[in-house]
């Protein structure tokens, strides 16, 4: 599936394009920060220190103790931004991964078998598309309610970082609803790809040679639909990160360690402590730009014919 030619194309494009390098650095940086959060964060992001409320960042006359200042409850903004990367990336990857897995499965089965399976699946997708993604996500969220999953932090458990939270809260409902809304688009796209691949000679010939349906689907149809789906996945990842921050901004979340949550909390202090709402937004911006640039890189390297433009 990943041929040496693919790797060469990726390398060529990477060496040619400054933006691809920038994307890789931004995403790499975000992953690095997210994974090593307990080691990088100077303070416990949830610890409230009421005597240092609304401290300005260092470039506005604050101290190096709190480089990006503190929020209204005296929590260190830098630590919160670092931990927020965990929530954003984890939710983004899990949600877009879930959406891709289920959506591609539905799409390929639909496109391959056609007939009533296709009709039912695609009609359902059409109907659900009449409800905008965020609205659908909010509705499902309100049905399920916030489910937060506590994951023990291995770095803290092994004793590498003292005074850090020993577990990390994964907002399960948020990831699920974002995944659900992504299923629709993945199903549509995968179906279209499967329909066209299905007509190719090699698929027909392996069918004629008596290969089973499942085998044909996984050996021939799936790998040949991968490139556009991979590029689309990066777009959905960017979208998932944005949606996660939007949901937590709106107060639909399972955790308070989220960029969107901090922006929402900082709104009331725009006149006095504007950095609370500003800093996490810059973090979102960098992460999403990084993912989008990564997507451009994949698209240009793997499938130059693919259309530009974002969903």
């Amino acid at each position: 599936m990943i041929s040496t030619r693919t790797i060469r194309n990726l390398k060529n494009e990477l060496s040619r394009s400054f933006l691809a390098k920038l994307g890789l650095i931004l995403v790499g940086g975000a992953i690095f920060v997210a994974v090593l959060a307990p080691l990088l964060a100077p303070h416990d992001p949830t610890q409230q220190m009421l005597q240092v409320r609304n401290q300005p960042p260092v470039f506005l006359g604050g101290t190096w103790e709190y480089p990006l200042g503190t929020d209204a409850l005296g929590r260190d903004m830098l630590s919160r931004v670092i931990y927020g990367a965990r929530t954003s990336l984890l939710v983004g990857v899990v949600a877009s991964g879930f959406g891709a897995l289920v959506g591609i499965g539905i799409g390929i089965i639909s496109g391959y078998y056609r007939g009533w399976i296709d009709d039912v699946a695609m009609r359902s997708v059409d109907v659900s598309l009449a409800i905008p993604g965020l609205v659908l996500a909010l509705t499902i969220f309100s049905i399920i309610g916030p489910i937060a999953i506590n994951i023990p932090d291995p770095i803290v458990a092994l004793g590498f970082a003292q005074e850090m939270p020993d577990s990390f809260t994964f907002p399960g409902t948020v990831a699920f609803v974002i995944g659900v809304i992504a299923v629709r688009q993945f199903a549509r796209l995968a179906r279209g790809e499967a329909l066209s691949v299905r007509e190719e000679e090699y698929v027909k010939s392996s069918e004629a040679a008596g290969a089973s349906n499942i085998r044909v689907m996984f050996i021939h149809v799936l790998p040949n639909t991968m490139t556009p789906l991979l590029v689309f996945w990066t777009l959905r990842l960017a979208h998932a990160i944005l949606t996660e921050s939007t949901l937590s901004f709106l107060g639909f979340s399972g955790t308070t360690l989220s960029w969107g949550y901090d922006i929402s909390a900082g709104r009331d202090y725009l006149g006095t402590a504007w950095w609370i709402a500003s800093v996490p937004g810059v973090a979102i911006l960098f992460a999403v730009i990084g993912v989008n640039l990564l997507g451009d890189w994949l698209r240009d390297a793997l499938d130059p014919g693919l259309q530009e433009g974002y969903e």
Partner: peptide, 22 residues
């Protein structure tokens, strides 16, 4: 265009409020 598609809507709104209104 890249900035535009990568900026969260709500944050952009808040930043506009901060700069232009506040």
């Amino acid at each position: 265009a890249l900035l535009g598609i990568s900026t969260p809507n709500f944050w952009l709104g808040i930043m506009l409020v901060l700069l232009v209104s506040v």
